[in-house]
Design a protein around this nucleic acid. Sequence first.
DNA 1: TATAGTTAGCTGTGATCACAGATGTCAACG
DNA 2: CGTTGACATCTGTGATCACAGCTAACTATA
Lengths: 234, 234
Amino acid sequence: MAPVAPASSLALPRAERVTLNGVAYDGLKRALLSGRLEPGAVITLRQLADELGTSMMPVREAVSRLAAEGALAVQPNRGIVVPALGDGDAADLWDLRIKLEGDASARAARRADTAGIERLRALCRAVETAAAAGDLHRVLACNSDFQFAVYQAAQSPVLLQLIETLRMRSVPHCTAAIRVLLADRPPYYARSWVNHAALVEAIAAGDAPAARRLKQADLREFRDFVDSVRKQAS
Amino acid sequence: MAPVAPASSLALPRAERVTLNGVAYDGLKRALLSGRLEPGAVITLRQLADELGTSMMPVREAVSRLAAEGALAVQPNRGIVVPALGDGDAADLWDLRIKLEGDASARAARRADTAGIERLRALCRAVETAAAAGDLHRVLACNSDFQFAVYQAAQSPVLLQLIETLRMRSVPHCTAAIRVLLADRPPYYARSWVNHAALVEAIAAGDAPAARRLKQADLREFRDFVDSVRKQAS
DNA sequence: TATAGTTAGCTGTGATCACAGATGTCAACG
DNA sequence: CGTTGACATCTGTGATCACAGCTAACTATA
């Protein structure tokens, strides 16, 4: 027993050690989720290791982890590649994303606390101001943050992890369409930002069915846009 | 160009190289899915490496992969542990399992081919004969094979992978209850096998809603059994 | 005897080296 | 000129070694 009472119990946050392995994993994960890696892009363990300034070892484990989740594919003696999705896999991914991200939105409406809702409102405003300024790159970044904030508000780590896994596989499949979005600025997509505001209000009001419906409609619209761009390109 | 036509195109199955890394991964995965590893069990990289007769390296990557999926947890200098689920995570896992495994069952009813249905019937009979013989260990093994055969019949690799991930985290949480099942043989669980037959018939008939309903009822029953055993133990 | 300080033995993490296999280049041969 | 062969190069895979950190047992002290 300590002779004195623990100094206000301190509540120190676990002091989690940073590991190069984890740094490499997070970096690759962010690159995938933000659309910086396109399907077919080949990368190399040694190249990534040089980029991080470490040896090949931490990168290996990070790549192995991503490969286990299907986000990357290692080809025995030919490098690491971001897998291109077949039509079947792409459809499956969209179906599951629509289902699970809809679930997460509905769940957020049921379980979000006031801090989470405030955070959502702030991120929603950030998206709107970026859109007003015409900075589409920042719109996309804030938009991604906003969406994950919704899923975090659902307070289900398991569900959040599944959504991240699905997105890591799905986002590269959408990069070509996003590039078209940045270049041509089709008029339809401006509506998406007002959809976000409606989603936030549904969550704040605790209206789970509306939150699910709004998120799923948004996702289906985006899916159709991606598919139309891909069809046009082929 | 080859001087002769490719001999009936061969369709060689990619000649996939076996890698010690993959062997270790599959072994650990099977151990988790079959319930041979319980929460709190600590294992060691060197111990696993000795068991496989290899160096520590392949085991490291396999463990990293499982850790990325949440099936194992590495503690910096204290070994690898099968994580014990908190109440919240356990409830989340059950909800997602009920949802996704129900989806997969419904999808199997829609997309199963005759070969898949025949395989399901055979595995269902295998469960019944094992149950008639009183060999509960074999019942559990055949039961697991049967369930995964259903999910494979859904013909969605993405969905199958998600279900495997969820199960790897969920099964260790159920081992204590399964041990009770093997020892006490409570009467209720005999009904589960006839439920299986009904599920197969629903799939064969293409009745997706019925397939979903049967699978979800089965899972909820099992969840309640596991929870009752855990509550009784504490 | 009880407690604090120390040390020895584990652990995972990271680096470095060695190796088999696939690829693409280039020269020699038809 | 077209084809085939060998070779240099680069890939991931696996092994071995070195190291920092945490545990737990042990010892010396009050």
